[in-house]
């Protein structure tokens, strides 16, 4: 069963995942822009895999254009899961 989806749980998942990609943990916040965190399309593909694993939500193709901040990713996952 996918984990319970709340903005807090998704944020926790992302906060745990991004440092594995080399992102400085102290720079991660909802307002942080992915570009500023040096999170590119390949990182996003890896993050998507983790989020799908955890919440059963797929982020694919067109979604990348709608996402510019960590908060955007959280909102999209929460709305899809709901």
């Amino acid at each position: 069963m996918p984990a319970t989806v709340t903005p807090d749980t998704v944020e926790a998942t992302i906060t745990e995942a991004l440092p594995q990609f080399g992102v400085d943990p102290s720079e991660i916040s909802c307002d942080a822009r992915l570009e500023d965190l040096d999170v590119d399309s390949l990182d996003l593909a890896e993050l998507s895999q983790i989020l799908e694993d955890e919440y059963g939500v797929q982020l694919k193709g067109e979604d990348a254009k709608k996402i510019s901040t960590v908060g955007d990713v959280i909102d999209l996952v929460v709305s899809r899961a709901g």
Binding site: Q20, F21, G22, D38, L42
Partner: peptide
């Protein structure tokens, strides 16, 4: 190498 450089 940085974490990012090494894992890429």
């Amino acid at each position: 190498l940085s974490v990012k450089e090494a894992r890429r």
